[in-house]
Design a protein around this nucleic acid. Sequence first.
DNA 1: CGTTGACTATACAAACCTGTCTAATTACTG
DNA 2: CAGTAATTAGACAGGTTTGTATAGTCAACG
Lengths: 198, 198
Amino acid sequence: MASRDSGEGVAHLAGNARSRILETAYDLFSHDGIRAVGIDKIIAEAGIAKATLYRHFASKQDLVLAFLELREQRWTREWLEGESERRAARPQECVFTVWDTLDDWFHRSDYEGCSFINTLLEISDAESAIHRGAAHHLAVVRKTLERYARQAGTKDPQEMGYQLQVLMMGAIVSACGGDLDAARRAQDFAGHLIAIER
Amino acid sequence: MASRDSGEGVAHLAGNARSRILETAYDLFSHDGIRAVGIDKIIAEAGIAKATLYRHFASKQDLVLAFLELREQRWTREWLEGESERRAARPQECVFTVWDTLDDWFHRSDYEGCSFINTLLEISDAESAIHRGAAHHLAVVRKTLERYARQAGTKDPQEMGYQLQVLMMGAIVSACGGDLDAARRAQDFAGHLIAIER
DNA sequence: CGTTGACTATACAAACCTGTCTAATTACTG
DNA sequence: CAGTAATTAGACAGGTTTGTATAGTCAACG
């Protein structure tokens, strides 16, 4: 059934099979986690055959790694960086506007937490490619915070990057527990820190 | 039920079946997470029969909730509070010594992260009894931090409890990603905060 | 027109999952 | 010693998991 050739239908279901699979995996993995989502659920939701999935991705692990890559592109680059830099009138303000960006996120009804943190903790085996992938993508986020710290003129941007990420990850987890004010709290926090370390 | 005890209560291997099951579940759940550990693995490791497990615990969910309770008793009460208060010469110092306690933890070779955070994120359905249980146990930790803030004479101990927990959870996640200096960083952080908010 | 490559649907393998049940055995207790 | 409760090993049900295999459909392209 469903001769899908020139169809369009639901936005992210259009296009070739590979992107339909990846889009569906993105939605499911980011919302429910890795282990909770099976291949069967992905192929049912994407409306493709199992053999098609395994042609495009060698294994579930491969699909998870592709999901994390896409998450970096969309969440880290387009959303977190894009939004925070758009809100900042000058580059030195990004270190503050990033918390406004997070605040919006925490208040969204479909707030799903940070997939890098979730995956890092869920796949806790440090040797696993998935665990190492999640750690890598978190390091990229840290580099962004380090750049914001540098733009704000702090003395030790690298150390500040680590500190800001501790704050950011703590706020994200706190929001997962229902604390919707976590970003405002973290922003106050960061304000003190930067005033001292400038 | 169970009129058979009236004594002892330690015994990991030689003790009664219920405690053997719970001890084994504690080790496995705290190290590998909830979904990654099956009932079959628990009964094999504990060396008991499946029917025995299901006599003492109605379901896996019940066992997980009992594990979280035990984690609160051992990790939150005996270890985190016990160790931090033992290290403090005076009650107002707990808000600093708690980071020394965490620093030791992060440097242990078998550092496994915080089971309350791990479980909260792994079982992300907010309606689930397990998710709500984990959130409850995290609130208990926050109350402890709030008490330390009060003992240190801060102006708004409740708000400070939230802030310190953001810091603590961020440090714990950071350590899961390999950042072993996370506790020192958080301690510096907390020092600034308390100097300002006193 | 015929070959090729992508896709579909489904069956299958082999393992795992939670939870129930039986039947036999051990151990405590009145 | 007899009765009862706890525990055992294992089969079983009904479901899930990842991944492979088979067989057929469809469209594009030379």
